[in-house]
Amino acid sequence: MQRRRIALAQLAPRLGRLDENLETHRRVLVEARSAGADLVVFPELGLTGYQLQDLSGEVAMRLDDERLLSLARETQACSAVVSFVEEAPDHRLFIAAALLEDGEVRHVHRKVYLPTYGLFDERRFFGAGEVVRATSSRLGVPLGLAVCEDFWHLPVPILLALDGAQVLVNVSSSPGRDVAAVNEVGLGTATSWRALMKTYAMLTTSFVVFCNRVGVDESVTFWGGSEVIGPDGETRFRAPLHDEGVFTVEIDLADVRRERIVLPVLRDERPEMVRRQLERVLRERAGGGRG
């Protein structure tokens, strides 16, 4: 038995109020830690709110920002994933998710896919991350961090799993839309996300941990529905839609081992073949013609 307790902080951040959100994070983190949580996961841009527009530069933090470091100091003997606007030393702004552990900023993932269509306008305000990399963690297995739209692109979960991640953590600010009666849970967005996450859990034989915010920014209402899915694709926990709350889920990391031995699809993945084919496709797409 390798049990770990994961706390999903399904919060409603206040738009643009960094100090207030920092305080909420600190409080939830301390409470969850004393309740025995090994990992506390906060939603995308939980420290700033989502629809920032020109506020993006005003709420940005460098990785050596004292406010971020002081939040990290609350993670003695536990881990947390928090998300904020990161300002790089060269002043590019990124949507970042950071793994805080044992008092330090252990790893930072910059959102690699920035939706700029429909109701989204992220590329206008942010730079796109270039790196997808698993990170070791005090949970005992590597984690893979991703932010919202990163999970609407197949390469992200597979790269993280190939890099060793056994728990994929997606933090989101997903706006709920499409209330057509035909949808499974009355919300098209939730239906799509559940299909994606179940698929990734099965194909990577990993745990998928999804923390989505609630509350309202401008026109959009975020739907929550945070979730933990086992490496067999079965939902282990599902938070209610739209309710703010901190939900604790216990997982057994031994499930990953069991599943990967029974169903060794990750072992049978063929990255070299994929690379060769990708190189060919890229060559041809660039006008190189068929070899």
Binding site: L15, G176, V179, A181, G186, G215, V216, S219, T221
Partner: peptide, 24 residues
């Protein structure tokens, strides 16, 4: 028929929206 909505979810979103707008 294509306009049928899940009124429970729609109602929740609108209620949250009203609260959110006033709060903001």
């Amino acid at each position: 028929p294509e306009l049928a909505i899940d009124t429970r979810v729609a109602r929740r979103i609108m209620v949250e929206f009203i609260r959110g707008q006033l709060r903001q």
